[in-house]
């Protein structure tokens, strides 16, 4: 694959070169944000954003709504599974 890990942009270190500091669980590293900055916004807008980091580059901005949506589907699956289990149990009873 390509090892990628979520991190949060906490500072811009060199706006002209598109370099920023990313924080991954308390470990910091300078990375390039060239691939995730919008041409029409100041690079400082990225501070606070969550990105996927690969070999020193932010490759994607994490879509927090999508993440929540995935977890919601998983939770609902859990409820369905519980209901199925309950139905099976009551069917046996």
């Amino acid at each position: 694959m390509c090892l990628g890990i979520p991190g949060q942009i906490v500072a811009i270190t060199d706006a002209s070169r598109g370099l920023a500091t990313v924080d991954v669980a308390g470990v910091k590293r300078e990375i390039s944000v060239a691939f995730v900055r919008n041409a029409d916004e100041a690079v400082e807008q990225l501070i606070g954003a969550w990105v996927l980091v690969h070999v020193g580059f932010a490759m994607s901005r994490i879509d927090e709504d999508e993440a929540a949506e995935t977890l919601k589907i998983l939770s609902e699956l859990g409820e369905v599974a519980q209901e199925t289990e309950a139905m099976r149990a009551s069917g046996r009873a």
Binding site: V24, A25, I62, T70, L71, L74, L77, G78, A81, E85
Partner: peptide, 23 residues
Amino acid sequence: MRFVDEFRDADKAKALLAEIGTV
């Protein structure tokens, strides 16, 4: 770790495995 630990949740895995079994 955010966006990592949520996706390693054992309870959700159990439910998912039950669903996978059905499908």
